[in-house]
Nucleic acid binder design. Structure first.
Lengths: 381, 381
DNA sequence: CTGAAAGCGCTTACAG
DNA sequence: CTGAAAGCGCTTACAG
């Protein structure tokens, strides 16, 4: 089990150096011939000392394979370098990108993150909240599935900074959510740039704030371009499903040709897919006849659509990272103003809008770069 | 920020009880009028003492809102009640169910789990492995995307128990993976029970062990029923994509009617979906003419398929929970034999196989063939 | 039954 | 520049 180097191991092991036991700073100090406090300072770049001494300690540490005990350090420094991620999304559509971004940003700074998948059960929430307190996390990220719902209804005073991500936050709290208005604008402006003029919008249920915001973005972009059609009828809120997109696509043919949209901005990728299926089935060519933009950049849908879907990516990974960084500032006592931050989305251009004349293509257009092209959904292996 | 109760707060706060500071066991002891060691024992149900004393301590603890400091406890008990989850799957298809199951099972036992999303970058792996050691986790779960790939190629001696989940493990290690052979049998036996006789198999690339195993299960089930067709041609390995399923579905019509399968067992849900689309598009009715079973129970696909897909669920949540429990045993020093455990899958019956004669129907099964006879696009959801 | 002491592995003033 | 001492918040033998 142990494959420690055999060099420098001539003397019989003293009690502090018992084989299999973890090597502590005492071992390092002894090996380097200094006191424990000096060893500590040397290892932590603190205080002044001879370069020679510092080096000797460092050498001893690597030689012995010293790993500092973060628990002990946390106990004295009152800082555990851990944070908690409490998420209600056990399915993972939103949480995993957020968690991955958070985890990566934190790992670089020596901070580890506890995952608490609580779903919606209040007792799970309580248990995990308590665990986080016992474990002395420095702060907490609370992540949800909807920007208009709180994950924890009555958050008790935790005595630590908290940031809400992709979820609702109350007055005085700090929240990070995707900028839905901006994301929608990205999509619609892209369509306009490509020469589309009759741009319809299909989306999910209106009781989602995201639906309202994306519709606003759509409207604003159209208005800016002087393309806003009269009447509210052109926005079609419905369901988040493929079936709904399909149904709308079928209704496309009920309208006289002159009234048919030449583009659709969809509230999510599933709707876009259903829509494209219906249009294609009806003999309409996407993107030649009708352009389609989705929302979410859910690879699985976006890449499987024929043609591959141009769609808005909410950059949830960045969102997680940004939230984590701000949490760190809070932990460091830096002043951070409350309120919700709407983080920018980005448009991923594939082929469902054609190229038009804008020359908007990116190198990776029509697909993600190789590295990201994983065997998604490849059921295990 | 602090909303401590105001009762029992008459005396001016002593230095150990400064407002805003966390209350420690010393505070509890003082409040209860006992020593710290007695307080500790009372709170931990250890040693013998008057019920009266124990109660007094407990009361003081709740009154003061005492939360034990797990860091301090870990330092002395050499047990942190934390484990690490290192996962290469940043997309989340497999990790999140596993993580959720693990997290839930551990939370019930006071164990918290660190999430380390490392992707495939070796430096991320190293950083996170080191962080887990510094944080003194009691054990590590390493989760992957494929049962035939190691997540960490050369795992250094960590000095802590490790369990591999949904990933390859080496001789002498412990692994938890879904039972692919069993899962396949579940699917095929279901089809047989429903009266299907010519059951084809479509799956992903043959360099996936999962593909090989599922094919084995398919073959075994057929053989048991005396339905094994001669020649290896009836297994069609290809890609994990919808496009591949669609392509196979199209080839269905190239064969003479007498040679056409009356059922397909698909290696994943995406293939199944593509297949169903192609069959429906060609006028074949699913399940009346051809039954289809998928694999993964990826809700998004399984529920969106027309008709909703009967599919194999790998029970990844259970897998995560089971792995965690075994890790706990390892941590407790209990003997656990090495090797890989293949955990059972379960069949989720929806409507893509019809009811047949086996009386296997559930209330929502058995849609009218007419309703199900829909063009390709209707396979939205 | 209860408490004083030592110690988990570190860091941090404070002396020398 | 270096080290002895105290202490972070707890638990665990060991005395009383």
């Amino acid at each position: 089990m142990d494959e420690k180097t055999f060099s420098h191991r001539d003397e019989p092991p003293k009690d502090e150096e018992r084989v299999g036991e973890r090597v502590t700073i005492r071992d390092v100090a002894k090996q380097a011939g200094v006191s424990v406090s000096t060893a500590s300072k040397a290892l932590n770049e603190r205080g002044r000392m001879t370069a020679e001494t510092r080096d000797r300690v460092r050498q001893a540490a690597t030689q012995l394979g010293f790993t500092p005990n973060a628990l002990a350090r946390a106990l004295v420094s009152q800082r555990s370098f851990t944070i908690g991620l409490l998420t209600s999304d056990t399915y993972g559509r939103f949480t995993l990108p957020i968690a991955a971004g958070l985890s990566a940003a934190m790992a670089d700074r020596g901070v580890s993150v506890f995952l608490c998948a609580v779903g919606d059960a209040q007792d799970r929430i309580d248990i995990n909240l308590r665990a986080m307190q016992e474990k002395c996390v420095d702060g907490l990220i609370i992540a949800g599935k909807r920007i208009d719902r709180r994950v924890v209804r009555d958050l008790p005073p935790l005595g630590m900074p908290v940031i809400h991500v992709n979820a609702a936050s109350a007055e005085g709290e700090i929240g990070f959510v995707p900028d839905d208005i901006g994301g929608a604008r990205l999509a619609v402006e892209h369509l306009i740039r490509l020469g589309r003029r009759r741009i319809a919008h299909i989306s999910g249920p209106t009781n989602f704030e995201a639906v309202t915001l994306r519709e606003q973005g759509w409207r604003l972009a159209l208005d800016d371009a002087g393309l806003l059609l009269p009447g509210p009828a052109s926005a079609l809120p419905g369901e988040w499903s493929e079936a709904y997109g399909f149904a709308v696509g079928q209704r496309f043919f009920d309208r006289p040709s002159s009234e048919r949209p030449d583009a659709y901005f969809c509230g999510n990728d599933q709707i876009a897919r259903g829509l494209i299926d219906a249009l294609s089935f009806g003999g309409v060519c996407v993107p030649a006849d009708v352009a389609v933009v989705g929302y979410d950049n859910w690879e699985l849908f976006a890449a499987a659509t024929r043609p591959p879907l141009t769609t808005v990516d909410m950059c949830l990974t960045d969102l997680g990272g940004a939230a984590g960084l701000t949490l760190l500032e809070l932990i460091d006592g830096k002043p951070v103003s409350p309120g919700v931050r709407r983080q920018p989305c980005r448009l991923v251009v594939r082929q469902s809008c054609g190229t038009g004349s804008a020359g908007y293509a990116r190198p990776q257009m029509g697909g993600k770069p190789e590295e990201e092209r994983q065997p998604i959904g490849s059921s295990t292996g």
